[in-house]
């Protein structure tokens, strides 16, 4: 699609990170297992049929039925049934040197635990290899209280932080190119004869591609609004007004900040104009529009 006036890609890093990490409550079964781990023991739980699940679940994975109420200490040693060799450890992996992931049948268990093994080389970890846990000194009740396993005699808050590279292309890029020039770009659906702003690739009503671009003025009418009393990083102060603003000539409102007027003087029907940041400060961003501010015209009639 040929949409962009400039060719530089518009890219930003985007991170999803809940501050401090998700706090997970464990429930009794996982909690017991992790508590035992903190104490340096590995336990499984017995199902109604007498199988020992390690790590323990609250249910028999085969049937969904609750497990019987009996914990059994297992291991600490176990036998590797399969392993995979990580040549280049990644952030978040348990070890910072090459290691193996392994499926380990702990002594006394009927299911297998997945964990890391510090094996030195992939050759050292053939199926059947006996491995032992290597415990962390500072244990907190987390699956990583076992730092890793190691061949014979050898050895949680969940920070989640996926990172993305977001590119503004397509219609959004076209719109932001306009915003850099100080212009609101919209598009007219030829089928519905409706003008959409921001400019978009297709009509939400009929699905037709929108080819016709329209430059809209930076004046419009507040159709409705909220007075926000909770802080937001995108607003300069509290309270602030977020409003639906119908630009003149557009058929769909944009949600934007209203400023330059006390919050409680904002009205439905109020005429407003975009206040742009100085040309020298403009970027490919909606931040070019500081807010919309009253023009002083008479209020528009609302339908």
């Amino acid at each position: 699609m040929e949409t962009s006036e400039t060719s530089e890609p518009l890219v930003a890093r985007h991170v999803l990170e809940f501050p401090g990490g998700y706090t997970r409550t464990t429930g009794p079964v996982i909690g017991r297992f992790l508590t035992e781990l903190r104490a340096g023991r590995i336990v499984g739980v017995r199902t109604a049929e007498g199988r020992v699940l390690v790590p323990p679940l609250e249910y028999d994975p085969a049937s969904g039925e609750p497990v019987a109420d009996g914990y059994v200490e297992v291991g600490p040693a176990g036998t590797v049934t399969a392993s995979a060799w990580v040549r280049e450890p990644r952030d978040g992996h348990p070890l910072d040197r090459p290691f193996a992931w392994a499926v380990i049948r702990l002594d006394g268990a009927d299911t297998s635990l997945v964990h890391a093994v510090d094996a030195g080389s992939p050759k050292a970890l053939a199926p059947g290899t006996r491995v032992w846990p290597v415990w962390r000194q500072q244990r907190q009740g987390h699956i990583t209280d076992i730092s890793h396993f190691a061949p014979e005699v050898t050895r949680i808050v969940s920070p989640i932080r996926p990172e993305y590279r977001i590119q503004a292309g397509g219609a959004l890029r076209t719109f932001l190119d306009g915003i850099r020039r100080g212009v609101f770009l919209g598009g007219r659906c030829a089928t519905c004869d409706k003008v959409y702003v921001p400019y978009r690739a297709s009509c939400p009503e009929c699905g037709s591609a929108i080819d016709q671009r329209v430059e809209l003025p930076d004046t419009g009418t507040i159709t409705t609004f909220a007075i926000n009393n909770l802080p937001d990083p995108r607003a300069p102060e509290v309270p602030f007004v977020s409003a639906y603003i119908l630009l003149d000539g557009a058929d769909v409102p944009m949600i934007a900040l209203v400023g330059g007027v006390p919050a409680h003087e904002v009205r439905q029907g109020m005429r407003v104009r975009a206040e742009w940041v100085p040309e020298s400060e403009r970027a490919l961003s909606m931040a070019n529009v500081r807010w919309f501010t009253p023009t002083g015209e008479e209020d528009a009639e609302l339908s």
């Binding site: 998700y22 997970r24 464990t26 996982i30 992790l34 790590p55 990644r90 952030d91 978040g92 992996h93 348990p94 992931w101 635990l113 997945v114 964990h115 890391a116 987390h142 699956i143 990583t144 949680i156 969940s158």
Partner: peptide, 10 residues
Amino acid sequence: PYYLAPLGLD
């Protein structure tokens, strides 16, 4: 989220 994800198993 208790036994596998915290290991960073990718």
